[in-house]
């Protein structure tokens, strides 16, 4: 009798849950009714066509294979491979996200170091933070004029807050003793910031960055549904308009997979900067 490790048992259970879930899903999809004798009128109006319905997992798998075997084809504005669509989304997310990081982390440092800056900026942050990022969209479209840049702006504005607040919180919470160590070693402001405060606050800052990338990936789908053209969000909406539910289900899964990959990148970074006191 051999025993399995905790991870092996968990993996086994995951596979069982997946298989059972897929079987239940497959079984729950009603079979298409057999088509009887059709009148000429029914044939002309497409009555013999299978009705649109939620696809079975086997159909989704076929679709996934078809799409993933050629992810980068480009057959015109409304027919691009899943790889291209996801690529556009990731490009927008990362652009908006890194612009946000460029603003949020230095500003968070300032707010964390200076109680005056904290108190002065806090009311603005508290009012701006709860605004749904999509609410900015009309204003962004009007002022920026370009739908692509507006989507990036929406990502920027939604990912800035967790990073800003966590950076400020992390920097303000750096232990006085560590700052005193820097002071007694005559480290200048620049060296203190990079050698002591940044590593001390890094776990909190990276947590903020991880929350932000999660929010940015949630928001990009909605933003692309609005602005259209390209991207995974547009793709979902376009396939809905085409009544191709198999593609819709497939792209929902892809959104999940990419979101998980983005998150695990930051999880890795988080493990790298975490320290034990």
């Amino acid at each position: 009798m051999f025993t399995l490790s905790l991870n092996q048992r968990a993996a086994l259970l995951s596979v069982v849950i997946l298989l059972v879930g897929l079987l239940v899903w497959e079984a729950a999809i009603p079979a298409q009714k057999a088509v009887g004798e059709l009148t000429e009128y029914e044939i002309l109006t497409g009555g013999g066509q299978p009705k649109a319905g939620v696809p079975a997992p086997s159909q989704v798998l076929v679709k996934a294979w078809e799409q993933l075997s050629d992810p980068f084809y480009d057959a015109g504005p409304n027919d691009k491979g899943i790889g291209i669509q996801i690529g556009y989304s990731i490009y927008r997310v990362l652009t908006g996200y890194f612009l946000a990081a460029l603003v949020a982390i230095p500003l968070g440092f300032l707010i964390g170091m200076s109680p005056v800056a904290y108190k002065a900026l806090n009311p603005f942050i508290q009012v701006l933070r709860p605004i749904s990022p999509l609410a900015w969209m009309p204003l962004a479209l009007f002022i920026i004029g370009d739908s692509e840049a507006s989507a990036i702006f929406v990502i920027f504005i939604c990912s800035i807050w967790p990073m800003l607040i966590n950076t400020a919180f992390g920097v303000a919470g750096v232990r006085e003793d560590w700052v005193n160590v820097a002071r007694t070693h005559e480290l200048g402001a620049f060296k203190t910031a990079f050698l002591v405060i940044l590593p001390a606050a890094a776990p909190t800052i990276v947590t903020g960055m991880r929350i932000s990338i999660g929010i940015a990936w949630l928001v990009i789908v909605a933003a692309e549904m609005l602005v259209g053209g390209t991207g995974i969000g547009y793709y979902v909406w376009n396939e809905w308009n085409n009544l191709d539910l198999t593609s819709v289900v497939f792209s929902i899964l892809m959104i999940g997979v990419v979101g998980m990959m983005l998150d695990s990148m930051f999880a890795y970074l988080q493990r790298r900067v975490t320290y034990v006191e």
């Binding site: 160590v181 007694t184 005559e186």
Partner: peptide, 29 residues
């Protein structure tokens, strides 16, 4: 006037920087 390398301090709670190795904690000083 102000802290200086001429006056070294050993704090009660050690005040080592937890993200640095033992050697780095000494060598950064």
């Amino acid at each position: 006037k102000g802290p200086s390398l001429d006056r070294g301090v050993v704090f009660q709670n050690y005040s080592l920087l937890p993200w640095l190795s033992t050697l780095k904690n000494v060598s950064f000083g």
